[in-house]
Design a protein around this nucleic acid. Structure first.
Lengths: 112, 112
DNA sequence: AAATATACATAATTTTCTTATGCATAAGAA
DNA sequence: TTCTTATGCATAAGAAAATTATGTATATTT
């Protein structure tokens, strides 16, 4: 993953969200998509990505389908029903996290 | 630190920001302040906080001043000059991180 | 022909946190 | 008055999640 340590812990959420968006994707495609969306600022490393995908699959959040394209293997992942539900939770947590961080960085007073 | 793994990696940035805001603070005060700002959603654990403070001090980003208040010790931390500069960097990184995450979660098309 | 891109994978190590302790004083509740 | 909670510090063991370093293999570009 990229330079800043801030991304630690957000990889699973990113994966679930991308798979919800674009239907099925394969690992390498995910790395490229993230690089594109963040304009090169976030580069997911393979050492982080593939174990994460395997773990999400083992947890029942992803299904895999292997295909051979141009004589090269691709493992397409998609969300299971459980994965869709979990994705919703993770996104809610992410938005709460972002709100909290923004409040810490740039506090708006509460009424009290 | 709190439940969600998303906060991993953001503790140092939080500390630097709070110390920039409120001048000097001691450890316990930081935990309470964060709890207050996030309305109890983020609870910094001592096992994470104190080592982080020691590390920031060792890196030359924080200065310490020990005081005895009500017969109890307090270690007041404040930013060094280097700490102020580093804080600026970390906050910029945080804002970039938040922008990237928002872009991943809710993409706005680029013009291309 | 060599370098880069595509595509997967895993092992060793590092970073960062959680959980579990430990010590000590002050304040409030039973 | 005793027990619990709050205040205030600290460290050690373990888990989680990443980085870095490899490894294999094919396709494409230089």
């Amino acid at each position: 993953m990229a330079n800043s340590k801030l991304y630690k812990g957000s990889l699973n959420t990113i994966i679930l969200k991308l798979l919800d968006e674009g239907e099925k994707m394969y690992g390498y495609e995910i790395t490229q998509k993230v690089k594109e969306i963040t304009k090169g600022e976030l580069k997911i490393t393979e050492g982080a990505l593939y174990p994460a995908l395997h773990k999400l699959e083992a947890e029942g959040l992803l299904d895999v389908e292997v295909k051979k394209v141009d004589n090269r293997l691709r493992k397409y992942y998609k969300l299971t029903d459980q994965g869709v539900r979990e994705k919703t939770n993770r996104l809610a947590e992410l938005e709460e996290f972002i709100r909290n961080m923004e409040q810490l960085v740039n506090p708006k007073w509460s009424i009290n």
